[in-house]
Simulated scan of single mutants.
Amino acid sequence: MKVKVVVFGILRFPAENIELVLPHLKSFVDATREKDNCIAYDVAEDPFDKGLIRFTELWPDRESLQSHLNADHVIPWRDSAKKYGLMERKFSSYDLSSDEIPV
């Protein structure tokens, strides 16, 4: 499947809440990978900034991304994020206009 849309994002939680957030994040990521037609959906806590979670998403088209944003499993995740003190959320998407170029 060809990548046409890439998303980069961050969420920031209080460092002391990160262990409480992770089980909810795992459920959300598992559902996204299983149901939302993503090519890749990668999430990791920044090892140098406790509480910062980075997202990298690859999508075949804008429609798939939009469907993901409206999916049923997004609402429980957003509720959990608020419950555990979401402090910052920044996501940007980009349309790719060329084929993959290995580096």
Rank of each mutant, 00 (worst) to 15 (best):
E100R: 12
K83Y: 04
V43F: 09
T32H: 08
K50V: 09
G85I: 03
E19Q: 03
E16F: 02
I101G: 00
P60K: 03
P23L: 08
I10D: 11
A71P: 03
Y84C: 01
K50F: 07
V74C: 07
E57F: 14
R89V: 11
L58R: 14
P23K: 09
V6K: 07
K26N: 12
S27Q: 13
M87V: 07
R33P: 01
V103R: 07
L52H: 05
F55G: 03
E100G: 04
D95Q: 12
E100Y: 09
S93F: 08
I75C: 06
I18K: 12
P102W: 07
E63H: 08
R89Q: 15
H68R: 12
P47Q: 05
G9D: 05
E34L: 15
I10Y: 14
L25D: 02
R89D: 10
V7Q: 11
F8G: 08
D49T: 13
L96M: 06
S27N: 13
F13R: 02
K82V: 15
G51I: 02
K90L: 15
R12W: 04
K26A: 15
P47K: 05
K26D: 06
C38Y: 11
C38N: 10
L58G: 00
L86Y: 00
R54D: 01
I18E: 04
M1G: 15
E19C: 00
D46L: 02
M87I: 08
A31H: 07
D36R: 01
S67F: 07
R12P: 08
P102F: 12
E19H: 02
K26F: 03
L22S: 00
R33V: 09
P47I: 02
M1D: 09
F48A: 10
V6S: 10
V5F: 06
M87N: 04
R62E: 15
L65F: 05
N70G: 11
L58E: 12
F13T: 02
I53Q: 09
S80D: 12
V29G: 06
H24S: 02
E88F: 09
F91P: 11
L22K: 15
E34Y: 12
E34G: 06
S64A: 13
D49K: 11
N70H: 10
I39H: 06
F28K: 04
G85K: 07
S93T: 05
E34W: 14
P60T: 11
D49G: 05
F48N: 14
V6W: 00
S27R: 04
V6H: 00
D36I: 07
K83G: 00
E57G: 11
V103S: 14
V7G: 14
P14S: 03
K35P: 05
A44W: 14
L52T: 12
D95I: 14
R78A: 08
P60C: 08
A15C: 05
A31Y: 02
T32C: 13
V29R: 06
D72H: 07
R89Y: 10
F13S: 01
E34N: 13
L96G: 01
D79A: 09
A31L: 04
D61V: 05
V5M: 08
F48L: 09
L65R: 01
R33S: 04
Q66N: 15
D72N: 08
N17P: 13
P47Y: 01
V6D: 00
S64P: 00
L25E: 00
G85W: 11
I101V: 11
L25A: 01
H68L: 14
V43A: 05
M87R: 04
D49S: 15
L52S: 09
S27C: 05
D95M: 04
V5A: 10
